[in-house]
Design a protein around this nucleic acid. Sequence first.
DNA 1: GGAGAATCTTACCAGCGGTAAGTTATCACA
DNA 2: TGTGATAACTTACCGCTGGTAAGATTCTCC
Lengths: 214, 214
Amino acid sequence: MAYHHGSLKEDLLAAAARVVADRGPAGLSLRELARELGVTHTAPRHHFGDKRGVLTALAAQGHRLLAGRLVAAGDDFLEAGVAYVRFALDHPGHFSVMFRPDLVDEASEELRQARSRTRSALLRGAAAYAGPSFTADASLGATTEASGAATEGGRGALARSGAELPPFALLAWSAAHGMASLALSGALSAMGMGSTPEELTRSARAGLQRLTPP
Amino acid sequence: MAYHHGSLKEDLLAAAARVVADRGPAGLSLRELARELGVTHTAPRHHFGDKRGVLTALAAQGHRLLAGRLVAAGDDFLEAGVAYVRFALDHPGHFSVMFRPDLVDEASEELRQARSRTRSALLRGAAAYAGPSFTADASLGATTEASGAATEGGRGALARSGAELPPFALLAWSAAHGMASLALSGALSAMGMGSTPEELTRSARAGLQRLTPP
DNA sequence: GGAGAATCTTACCAGCGGTAAGTTATCACA
DNA sequence: TGTGATAACTTACCGCTGGTAAGATTCTCC
């Protein structure tokens, strides 16, 4: 066994995603991860600092993935919502830490940047749906990795002032988020409302269609 | 100090709700709770078995409270949604374990009964909104504590088959759940969309109003 | 007042996250 | 080519946690 693992950082992240996916963030043990990868339990510390660091990196990676999917859905509000749900089902490990500020390092610059992309994509979708009265910044740069922190200048009213996010947009985001959360946590089945991913996708689309812009 | 604490079970539950409310389920330490109440760390075991047992009791208590509020909101679909969000904000400790089957003891009869009340209340609200084409059982018995397990007979189509919950109802529940979750986890503020409880309540009402029944 | 059950304690175990200090490999550069 | 700096990883330790087993104390009720 080589002293240098080679790709410990990536492997740790991938293993963490897998474990979090089926045991939740609380069920993650750095020592177990390290054992699995054949290193001692202090090796991860070098790359991520501590457990919080691992979850932070996972969240950032997730935000980059999600933002990419939302942008790929284009200006279609419905498809963006569906894409949100599908992302959660496809990457449950990432999803379950992405919107949990209590679990991550809020000071992480990597996380802030990644999260800002998701935020922009969400606002852009809402703006497109709401019509010309709201305008979001078009230059979201969803694919450039090292694009630096998003600048606040040159944005539309919607993108600039989050607090004034129109209720329908907040509700739509909440709906997609809630549906994904309920499904992933197993609450849907526990409440006797089991659904396959396919049914859930259909329900999301059908439900969002009943939501009218202001 | 008396050997018998007197109300250890209730006190433990109340303390647990408080701790979970501001540190999450993972941040709960039975030992810390026991210290706080002046007993040794094995005392809780007698009442709840283990940590999972505490969270299970908390979830069951929460479901009874929530079901009560939903029933109190009557057949008004909008108000039920708003009540859902308000409940989450009022009882964050309870709420954060109620829809997390991974954290509780699924075999608990107390939990099953409590959860069944919430389920009935949710379905009843959806049925009332959807109109006479869907009918939910009227005898939900939301106040009788020892009513026993809900019988499956004599229910309307909506209440009987959860999988066929109409998309708009699932979306509405998801929206209320998602909004509450995002607010409680701090994700709303983290994404730059901070909202006070009052704003959130208004947004929930305004958003749900944009949702049309089939 | 005595039997039995409920309630709580003492003593112990393995596992976890985290820190400090030391070892080994790789890489940049003379 | 070799050497010094740095990155990558290890060993050894700490306190805390949840959980179990076995025992002590108090209450209940006949």
